[in-house]
Design a binder for these strands. Structure first.
Length: 203
DNA sequence: TCTTCGATTGTCT
DNA sequence: GACAATCGAAGAA
């Protein structure tokens, strides 16, 4: 299948580089043989036990073990008793880190997403980390999926190169109780949606 | 075992 | 803008 799959060496890079680099890439979901594709436009980096916003701050546990494993795999966890979150394991081996996928722009398989997000305005189908997992039917049983294998239910492929002036870095969302300096680290990356739409339309 | 609280969302005012 | 929903992981006891 796609020779343009994002290969494991990508995920061995520094976690911030991965978080920035994933902006503009395609998130692919194979659902019973049908592919849903969406461009990633918002991510956050969680980097190591010393990052007090990172789940691995408590060390290696059953939940975070996947972050200590091989790079390029999915770390999917459940939160608020309701929501699934999708992350990519990144960074140097032995260093627990991951990139949270916070938002995507669907480009293929819209009919499936429409069913998964019934009654929700299209604008809000995939504009949040738990919204996109619901839209793409991603749940905890896909935890540990190899994102570098096009036979996986979830995998990531090459996308658009976005110049830095269309991608801004801001503090991460929803970590109000995390102490400084972690709370203010500009480890969230978000692309200009208008620019991304134009880039997508050119292709 | 018990308590706290979360990398959020959707609804209601 | 405020807040309930809803449950499992982690830390305390």
């Amino acid at each position: 299948m796609p020779s343009d799959i994002l290969d494991r060496s990508f995920y061995l890079q520094d976690t911030l580089t991965c978080a920035r680099g994933l902006i503009g890439k395609f998130l692919n979901r194979n659902l019973n043989g049908r592919i849903i594709r969406a461009v990633i436009y918002e991510t956050e980096a969680y980097d190591g036990e010393e990052d007090l916003a990172c789940h691995a701050r408590a060390g290696k546990t059953k939940r975070t073990a996947i972050m200590y494993g091989e790079r390029g795999f999915a770390y999917i966890y459940f939160t608020y008793g309701v929501h699934w979150m999708l992350n990519c394991v990144t960074g140097r081996p032995g260093h627990p880190a991951a990139v949270l996928i916070r938002a995507v722009m669907p480009t293929q398989g819209m009919d499936i997403i429409a069913k998964n997000r019934a009654l929700i305005p299209q604008k809000h189908w995939t504009d949040g980390p738990a919204k996109l997992t619901k839209a793409l039917a991603i749940t905890g049983d896909m935890n540990g999926t190899d994102l570098c294998d096009s036979a996986s239910p979830i995998f990531i492929t090459q996308g658009f190169e976005l110049p830095d002036n269309y991608v801004q870095a801001t503090p991460r969302i929803g970590i109000d109780n995390t102490p400084e300096p972690w709370k203010s680290k500009p480890w969230r990356f978000i692309a200009d949606l208008n620019h991304l739409r134009m880039a997508a339309n050119r292709n």
